[in-house]
Design a protein around this nucleic acid. Structure first.
Lengths: 245, 245
DNA sequence: CTGGTCATGTGGTCACTACCAGTTACATTA
DNA sequence: TAATGTAACTGGTAGTGACCACATGACCAG
């Protein structure tokens, strides 16, 4: 990783600067709560305009690496987990972070016409068909969640079993294969009790408490992309989220 | 609400412009998915520099009102609920949004030395005292949640019963009385079963499933401000969150 | 009809300049 | 000594001017 700005590089200078600063933070060269050089100082250090400096800093502030105090300076945030929600809402990434080995059993992968309620959530007209994926999610080989996804894909956009088995991450497929980059999501969580069928799949007793998550995922342009329902085993799962203003 | 830029107004021009555009979106003058005037057009319409225009638009994009497409234009997002998480994580605001009448029974308000685990979450040294608030939260008169807050306040910073009863919102007190503006939070949610004591307070049967939320709230400077534990009645509460990248 | 080229409009990046608004330390003053 | 001003920082707002990257539609050559 370079520590200087390359003006001939295709990547924008503000981005190069942000990378340099982020690296210095991650490596501990810039200590938490300590001030980074002022904008005027950075100007002469890297021979960039203040506009560019501020753009870089602004990005790092957005990402939670820095915080500013008017009249005092710009400071390094004490590092929290600090992971994007994409990684948090992705089941597989999520499990890895908890130190568990992710696994899955794909129970279904097909095109269906879902219930009116789901179509409405996806803002599709009645009778539209979507791609439905049903999976049992495993952590260290034990069932942890029962996940059913409904994807608003055109009939010519196919997801194959191979895709799913290769990555395990739906979001990676969406971005790499269809250029769909999720940017927002609405999610609800509530408590429910396992039906006999669900209990069998999750290897628990019927009536055991479950955590039910329903999420609608939106693309950059605010188009609903996915409706997903996940039933988590209440005894083996803790939902985590990081909220930013 | 004015629809022009007042250069003598103390509020920044980019903010004035953002307000004007937001208003036009909310009133429907700018339709969802339609393009707003280009940056060069806005320049001549409002007699502002492109810098200022872009600052205004950037803010609205951050807030989810607009989205940009390079080479095509800037467009109005289809309006979702679009509420800040502050309002969502505030119990009282939250209930109002669901059309319920919020209420509370204050069971305790005192300074205590909490458990080491809570002190650690608040990044305080062992033996530190914090302000503890225990409340039963009501919706339309019925118990919905059991909330215990631990606030990292100095011994000279006092919250009174009157404060709490006046607003019901802790976050309003934090900002208005102590100039503490929460900006981020870590939250976990899991399923648990009601102890006899909890069951009594929530007016349910012991062993009934509950939604347990634990949250650590951070100020602008990433200092932990509040540790709060909420037990929600599983049968009467649905947790909602909006995730943004 | 197909595929390329090009002009034009869009947002994206960047430099330079100026002044405003908080914060702090320190010298000055009452 | 205590209050107060002030200079020298910090980040915040704003204008101007330039060029780049991407999207689109009109046009032309095959």
């Amino acid at each position: 990783m370079s520590r200087t700005i390359d003006p001939y590089n295709a990547v924008p200078k503000y981005y190069q600067l942000a990378s340099i600063l982020r690296q210095k933070i991650e490596e501990g060269e810039l200590q938490p709560r300590s001030a980074i050089p002022s904008e005027r100082q950075l100007e002469s250090i890297y021979h960039l305009s203040r506009t560019t400096i501020r753009e870089a800093i602004y990005n790092l502030v957005q990402q939670g690496f820095l915080y500013r105090e008017h009249g005092r300076g710009t400071f390094v945030s004490p590092q929290k987990l600090q992971k994007g929600w994409m990684e948090l809402t992705s089941f597989s990434e999520d499990l890895v972070k908890r130190g568990m080995q992710p696994g899955q059993i794909i129970r279904g992968l097909e095109r269906v016409v879902p219930s009116p309620r789901i179509l409405q959530r996806l803002e599709l007209s009645p009778g539209s068909s979507v791609c439905r994926i049903e999976r049992v999610r495993l952590g260290d080989g034990t069932p942890i969640g029962l996940q059913t996804s409904y994807l608003a894909l055109n009939p010519d956009q196919h997801i194959t079993l191979e895709d799913l088995e290769a990555t395990g991450s739906l979001y990676r497929i969406l971005s790499e294969k269809f250029n769909i980059y999720p940017s927002e999501a609405d999610e609800t969580l509530e408590v429910t009790l396992a039906t006999p069928e669900e209990a069998a799949l999750l290897e628990i007793t019927p009536g055991a408490p479950l955590l039910l998550s329903e999420r609608v995922l939106f693309s950059q342009e605010r188009r609903p992309v996915e409706y997903v329902k996940i039933l988590y085993r209440g005894d083996r799962y803790q939902y985590y989220t990081h909220l930013k203003r």
